[in-house]
Design a protein around this nucleic acid. Structure first.
Lengths: 127, 127
DNA sequence: TCTTGACTTAGAGTGGACTTCACGGTTTAC
DNA sequence: GTAAACCGTGAAGTCCACTCTAAGTCAAGA
């Protein structure tokens, strides 16, 4: 698969794909005789994984580290596990914060609904 | 309250507080005769609100817009409500993505646990 | 009175994650 | 065969959200 196809498939730009490869989020992709990237199924699994992790906020740095360990083979399994555990923890924290904000948004939206129906007045101290 | 106290209270830097004021996330804070910021209770409610929203990923831009409407008074209530509804939606989407990633991390951590106990082998296609 | 330390400003600098540029080589459709 | 579309590179540029710097002001304590 060409970079164009992969970019479309995962809704990433070609630039982003090249960038990810450069910084090590994706292993070096094989090239055709003309030097054009030709993505394998395995490459795509990497792209999909990285996209998912990036969306959740894992940094380029930590992902590059993970992929580097992955490429060193089986002996790095426990280091890799630790990275995942740490990132899982961070993710849970972020989600808890977001849940708090979500609750707060719901509360405020509710308040606006009541205000707009004329049931309540805006109080100066409500931001 | 001085900027130092507020920074400590909310675990933000003084620079960040000045920056938030400059870009309109916090209304202009009153000054002492010497020009030093003196935060009121109401200012602090703003700071707390903004901190919470920023943590959840709402942009400076959208928050500044919200605060600007807030300062225009009651007539902007429905516009403000709409901002909150839109941001709530985005937040839910982000959280759903993060939940997906979390599930995936759990699955992978589990796999590593089994590998490290020797129950399974790493497969090449597992990233 | 002098020093210390916290405060002020405008504006420059930083870090993360892309994104664009300039320009040349490659592939494809007709 | 050739034009159009696509791909390659390294380096520079961009955007967001701060963060730091320089140079100055001010209040309190020795």
């Amino acid at each position: 698969m060409t970079i164009k196809d992969v970019a479309e498939k995962f809704d990433l730009t070609q630039d982003t794909l090249r960038y990810y490869e450069k910084v090590g989020l994706i292993p070096k992709v094989n090239r055709t005789s003309g030097g054009v990237r030709d993505y394998t199924e395995q490459d795509m699994r990497h792209v999909e994984f990285v996209k998912c992790m990036r969306q959740a906020g894992l940094s380029i740095e930590v992902l590059a580290q993970y992929i580097a360990l992955y490429q060193e083979g089986e002996k790095t399994a426990s280091d890799r596990r630790q990275i995942l555990v740490d990132e899982r923890e961070k993710l849970m924290d972020r989600m808890a914060e977001m849940q708090e904000t979500l609750d707060r948004l719901d509360f405020k939206i509710n308040k606006y609904d009541r205000i707009l129906k004329g049931e309540t007045k805006i109080k100066k101290e409500d931001i």
